[in-house]
């Protein structure tokens, strides 16, 4: 898989807050079609790195390339339109809207450009996305009335309805029950069949079940990168991260 052309690459990407380098000269490469996990201790700079990639935050220095094209200067919404979808770490769905309307907000965006506002197609895409995450029966319920686990799935469905080339999931399983995590793993495995997925995750079981390759960050830098087995065997990783967890 890694031999494929990179979908996304960062070149010497940095971001500092005051004197602190949250992301420090990161070269990061993601192949088309792979499912990648990004792990590291708290404060390692994972969320910052991802924010730089999807444009929520401007980089201090460095570049972000999507299929070789420099997107560093594009504002976030244009990057989303180029296919980078981001689902929030803290669930931020529209509580007062129905589940379907939430997802439709994501789906309708693409038709606003084409000026072919076909409500039917928007609804179809939204329903498909809901079916995919298993929320079709809840489509007409108020999103705020769903359980926390289901709200997280609405968040993922909104990401899917954007029909992204790269789906970034920021700690998607946080706060989910074991049963919900099982469902979630199956879902992302299915999504990973046709989309590139970048997953920030603390739960090592989820990481090991889903990721083909793993990138480990520590103190703003990439500490190691490799297959699951390589990462498991890497002594530096064990010291910096796995050791501290167990």
């Amino acid at each position: 898989m890694a031999a494929l052309r990179p979908l996304l690459a960062t070149e010497r990407l940095s971001r500092s807050f005051g004197g602190l380098k949250a992301v420090d000269n990161v070269d990061f490469c993601l192949a088309e079609g792979e499912t990648r996990a990004l792990i590291g201790p708290n404060g390692a700079g994972k969320t910052t790195l991802v924010s730089l990639i999807c444009g929520r935050m401007p980089a201090s220095t460095g570049r972000v390339l999507l299929e070789g094209r420099d997107i560093s200067r594009l504002p976030a919404h244009k990057r989303v339109r180029q296919g980078i979808a981001y689902t929030f770490q803290i669930t931020s769905i529209f509580a007062n809207l129905s589940v379907l309307d939430n997802v439709a907000l994501a789906a309708q965006r693409q038709f606003l450009d084409e000026r072919s506002s076909s409500r039917g197609r928007v609804e179809q895409i939204s329903l498909d996305a809901l079916a995919q995450v298993g929320l079709a029966p809840y489509a007409l319920q108020r999103a705020g009335s769903l359980s926390y686990g289901h709200q997280r799935l609405v968040e993922v469905a909104m990401g899917l309805a954007l029909r992204p080339r790269l789906l970034i999931l920021d700690e998607p399983t946080q706060g989910l029950s074991d049963g919900e995590i099982e469902t979630f793993i199956a879902l992302i495995r299915a999504v990973g069949e046709f989309t590139t997925v970048l997953l920030i995750e603390h739960n090592m079981d989820v990481v090991m079940a889903l990721a083909e390759r793993i990138t480990v960050m520590d103190q703003g830098r990439v500490l190691a990168e490799g297959t699951r087995d390589e990462i498991r065997a890497n002594p530096a990783v064990q010291r910096a991260y796995l050791g501290s967890v167990r």
Binding site: P75, H77, F94, L97, L112, L162
Partner: peptide, 22 residues
């Protein structure tokens, strides 16, 4: 859809930005 996007922007600007809305 413009009107609904406005209401959603009122509720959560950042979320709408990350759904690709300008």
């Amino acid at each position: 859809s413009f009107g609904r996007a406005l209401v959603a922007i009122r509720e959560n600007e950042e979320r709408m930005r990350m759904l690709g809305y300008d």
